[in-house]
């Protein structure tokens, strides 16, 4: 009897402390994320009055407008283009760089610092600098190559120019995660395979990639979610009269324009609900698809 009572007392205490420790995160999540999600969904059924007062219930009419809004579907296409470019290219580059930086080379710490540096700069500042690099008239890029390319105002490729900025600024983050994953891989595998005569490239594809796949999966999922929410780069780089605007604006950019610039929070919320659904489906798909390519040992 005495021992059972002791266990349950201990359990109770663990229960109490356990909840206490996650309480700050829980409160933060509920107040800052969960409640706003439902408020946003709620708002998407309203026509917003001036300054958010006197909202009128309009049923599904915001959704009808959304379905017929060419700009929204173009923005969805832009967002996906951006996300795919940014995630695929940045992961490919950072994977190679991480493997190289994992080797014993001179100035390793120095290189790691350099690649991580873009992460600590403010995105707005990065965007401003790149905007000038890309400038058609006075930009460094065009001056260097002696060209006159409209990097950020040609509707055909402006979104990729913006993706390049995204890739450049996210490399460091991916590299750090990959480095951590690489250090988990036991050296024995490499030793054994090199005795068997495997080249560095074969080792990379047959040992490094499979054993790193859980990390790659994590990076892909979080980066896709992040990239689908791209806003600041586009907002800073593309001016309102830029002819490439409709071909570069993302869903969050449209949300910002409707909700904040035009004070139409109802329609803005509708756009965000669409984004929420897109992110949800993409993420569920990835979690199902991981069974095909992620190896947990």
């Amino acid at each position: 009897m005495a021992s059972i009572k002791k266990i349950s007392l201990r359990r109770r205490e663990e229960f109490f402390w356990g909840w206490l420790f996650i309480l700050p995160t829980m409160v933060g999540l509920i107040v800052l994320n969960i409640i706003p999600i439902f408020q946003t969904i709620y708002q998407s059924f309203f026509k917003t009055g001036d300054f958010g007062r006197g909202n009128i219930f309009v049923g599904l009419s915001n959704y009808v407008r959304l379905i017929n809004d060419k700009d929204v579907w173009q923005a969805l296409a832009n967002t996906l283009k951006y996300a795919v470019t940014e995630v695929v290219v940045s992961i490919a580059i950072s994977l190679v760089l991480a493997v190289l930086l994992n080797k014993k080379i001179r100035f390793r710490a120095g290189y790691r610092t350099i690649f991580f540096l873009p992460m600590i700069a403010a995105p707005a500042a990065i965007a401003m600098v790149w905007r000038w690099l890309y400038n058609t008239e006075f930009g460094l890029l065009n001056n260097l190559f002696g060209t006159k390319i409209n990097w950020i105002s040609n509707p055909n490729f402006a979104i990729y120019s913006i993706a390049v900025i995204g890739i450049w600024s996210i490399l460091g983050y991916n590299i750090v995660l990959f480095l951590a994953g690489l250090q988990e891989i036991p050296n024995d595998y490499y030793e054994a395979s090199s005795i068997d005569g495997a080249s560095g490239i074969r080792q990379f594809f047959n040992i490094t990639l499979p054993l790193l796949s859980p990390t790659i999966f994590f990076v892909v999922v979080t980066r896709v979610i992040g990239a689908l929410q791209v806003f600041d780069l586009i907002f800073m780089v593309v001016d309102i009269t830029n002819p490439a605007l409709t071909k570069t604006q993302s869903l969050v950019y449209l949300f910002y324009r409707y909700s904040f610039t035009q004070g139409n929070r109802g329609y803005g919320s509708t756009i965000v609900v669409l984004l929420l659904l897109v992110i949800m489906f993409v993420t569920i798909f990835q979690i199902i698809a991981q069974k095909k390519w992620v190896f947990y040992n």
């Binding site: 400038n135 058609t136 008239e137 006075f138 409209n150 950020i152 105002s153 040609n154 001016d239 009269t241 830029n242 002819p243």
Partner: peptide, 12 residues
């Protein structure tokens, strides 16, 4: 339009 939107008339 590209040039104007990137720079503004003032800068030009």
């Amino acid at each position: 339009l590209q040039t104007i939107s990137e720079n503004g008339t003032q800068v030009l």
